[in-house]
Amino acid sequence: MNPGTEAAPANRAEMHGGAWRPWSGERRPSRLRAAPIVRAGLRIALRKKLPLVLLFLPPVVATIIFSFVVYTVAALAQGMAPAGLGGAGGAMGQAMGGAGGAGDIVKQLVRVREMIVGFHLSTDFFSVLLMAWFGAGLLADDRKSGAHLLYFARPLTRFDYLLGKFCIVAAFGVLGSILPGLVIISVAVAASPDWSFLQQEGSVVWKTLLFGGAWTLVVSSLVLAVSSLSTRKSYALAGVFAWFMFSGATALLLSRLLKDRDWLALSPVQCGVRIAEDLFDMRLGVRDWNTPLAWTAWGLVVALSWTIIWWRTRRLEVV
């Protein structure tokens, strides 16, 4: 007998257990709980067309120009006149060190690799712009509008929330940093005789992925950390640029003042140059400071950024 209904007088309220049925299904939470955050974040980011056009235009133009140059170099290495250059191919080929021999082709392929590295370093600035613009408001705006309360009212862990936000920024990093590099590599592969670029310089592919991925991780983490410390997107944006400006100026200044290039490790951009040099086995002029220090500096930036993000979002949860 149900003790709750046994002695209930006639005029007392009753519980209608039949009308209210406790849910008895099986809860199967998705493993990709961050996916809706990523989808929504990207959809919102892609809604405003003008910033997209302005921010993607430089990397796209650079990709086209570099692709053309890479194609030209590869074509000239084979003694062909690239389409668009008309009959100038022969003269240009000679000007670029002659064409036709196997040794020349190898030399030109090395030049193509150098161009790809140069492209990476020259588009780094634009990828920072992209990630900063689209990432600066991700945590700051949530904090300002109180949207984090909506997130944390759902079966979503802090890890899911941060993973979702990170993926949004990283997506722009991939689009601005890794994808253009892969496009240029594809052009180089297609333009080289018998895909010789892939055979000779195939490691450039994974090196591009590694370098681009690491750069994206560093900048995304930094952007999110600054965003978590700010209450407005504009503050976060200013903070990111201030950090890059200050770290760059300080690194250059101290390395010059103290005549010790290790101080360049203070700047993530300079670390990027050093890491690219080492990874792609190239000489860009700043070889006399150690690469592990550059990797360590990047690692420290990431670790510090995530410590800040973790600490700040813990505070978000209790607001």
Partner: peptide, 8 residues
């Protein structure tokens, strides 16, 4: 003074 203070 030149690079950090005035410049940044």
């Amino acid at each position: 003074g030149w690079y950090a203070l005035l410049g940044v």
